[in-house]
Simulated scan of single mutants.
Amino acid sequence: MDPEFQRHDAQSAKAMLTELVDVYATVYDTPPYIGDPFFSVDSFRSRLEAAFDTEGFETVTARLDGRIAGYVHGATLPHDKPWWTSLGNRRPAPLQELAHSGDIFWLRELMVLPAQQNRGLGRQIHDTVISGRQESVTALTCIADNQPAHDAYLRWGYTVLGQIKHAQESPVYDAMYLTSH
């Protein structure tokens, strides 16, 4: 059965909050995330609820037999987002200009349930969200030692800008970007 993709604005994503958080709880129920407060379900719920109010917020879900098998959420990247500005001059001037003009999509999370991983669904979700965005560049952060995700993003054409931390207690992430159009 082919997945059904659906776009959701903040309002309709809020109505699915429990479902979205449940996917996160399943995906991150594995070492090294178990027991790490940064990756707790409550912490994620708080980050997701705060994301609903960001400019350009959108979620794309992939459903199989009516149930979410994976999803992505993101928004327009604020030009003054701390992880973004922490990269300093590692951001090429054209990217800095695009961020100032609201032309970078920040892919905040991409998750696929473990039972559906390694079947191309993550790439389909990724491509679905990007194809419907008006921004010309996509930026994301990927845990530097999450080799499967890191390798996938590189295969999909992303370029590493440098390493960042989202918070004192967070792991090291690679900040990456992809020219979408």
Rank of each mutant, 00 (worst) to 15 (best):
E169W: 09
T138V: 13
S46D: 10
A99L: 06
L77Q: 01
A152V: 11
M111I: 13
R119K: 09
I34A: 07
L87E: 01
T141V: 15
Y33A: 03
Y24P: 02
L98F: 05
L48H: 01
A50T: 09
R45H: 04
P78L: 08
C142D: 00
P94D: 06
P92N: 04
P78F: 13
W106L: 12
S136P: 05
Y28E: 00
Y71S: 03
D80F: 15
S101V: 09
A115T: 10
L87P: 00
R108Q: 13
E49P: 02
I143D: 13
A115S: 11
S101K: 09
G132V: 14
A62C: 07
V23A: 04
Q117N: 04
L64K: 12
C142V: 15
P78V: 09
F105H: 02
F44W: 06
L98S: 05
T76E: 01
T159M: 07
L64S: 12
D151M: 11
V60A: 08
S170L: 14
S131I: 13
L48G: 01
W84H: 04
A167D: 10
I125E: 02
L87S: 05
A167V: 09
E55R: 13
L95A: 00
S136C: 12
L140D: 02
S43L: 05
Y153F: 14
R133C: 15
K81A: 12
C142F: 08
T54H: 14
Y28D: 01
A139G: 08
G88W: 08
G157Q: 07
L48T: 02
D36R: 13
A69W: 03
D80L: 13
W106N: 04
Q134F: 11
V23M: 05
P94A: 10
T59W: 07
S43T: 12
R155P: 01
I143W: 15
I104C: 01
L64A: 10
L77H: 00
E169T: 13
T128I: 11
N89R: 10
P92D: 03
N89T: 14
L87R: 01
G66T: 07
A139K: 03
A152D: 02
P78E: 05
D80Y: 14
